[in-house]
């Protein structure tokens, strides 16, 4: 009978795999609008009429080709719901943990379409469902054409 420590051999390996993903022409349109014009755009399902945001080639429910007519959404929106994150979670794009606690919100853009994002307001006392918000974009020189071009949503008084 071998020693327990001899039986339990562990092998540790860290794997880094580079990926290169393609956004496709519909998402690319949205990303270019974010980068160039700080705007959100979407398309629609010609059958059920719902807004497809992020935009896409097909309505997954109706199985029909989505429209190539573009509509503008937001940029302002309303907090549909939010929650407070208390545990440290690594930001997958930076690998660094985000200081907690912080709010995380689902926002309905004006005109339709849902987006999940961080809020500038972190005081739970000042957060409420239904609050009006607008996106704060990175300066144009730093924008790359990706949702990370949006820093967070900030409260607006209307």
């Amino acid at each position: 009978m071998a020693e327990k420590s001899l039986e339990q051999v562990k092998i540790s390996i860290r794997v880094e795999i580079p990926y290169l993903w393609t956004a496709g022409k519909y998402l690319a349109r949205l990303y270019n609008e974010i980068k160039e014009n700080e705007r959100f755009v979407a398309n629609k399902c010609p059958k059920c009429g719902r807004i497809l945001f992020p935009p896409r080639i097909v309505c997954g429910r109706c199985h029909v080709r989505a429209s190539d007519e573009w509509i503008e959404l937001g940029p302002r929106g309303t907090v549909k719901d939010y929650t407070i994150v208390y545990y440290s979670m690594k930001d997958p794009s930076t690998g660094k943990p985000r200081p907690e606690p912080y709010p995380h919100a689902v926002i309905v853009l004006d005109g339709g379409g849902l987006i999940q994002h961080y809020l500038e307001e972190t005081d739970p006392e000042k957060l409420r469902v239904g609050m009006r918000v607008e996106p704060v974009f990175k300066p144009k020189s730093e924008r790359v054409g990706h949702p990370t071009d949006i820093r967070y949503f900030r409260t607006v008084e209307e």
Binding site: T22, A23, L27, D81, T83, V85, H104, Y118, P147
Partner: peptide
């Protein structure tokens, strides 16, 4: 985290915990 869409929202993802917290709320 790799189940989320890297092209759309992986940067903002809260993983399974966030998703279920949201549903519970």
């Amino acid at each position: 985290m790799t189940w989320s869409d890297p092209v759309w929202d992986r940067h903002i993802h809260k993983g399974a915990i966030g998703l279920h917290a949201r549903r519970a709320a």
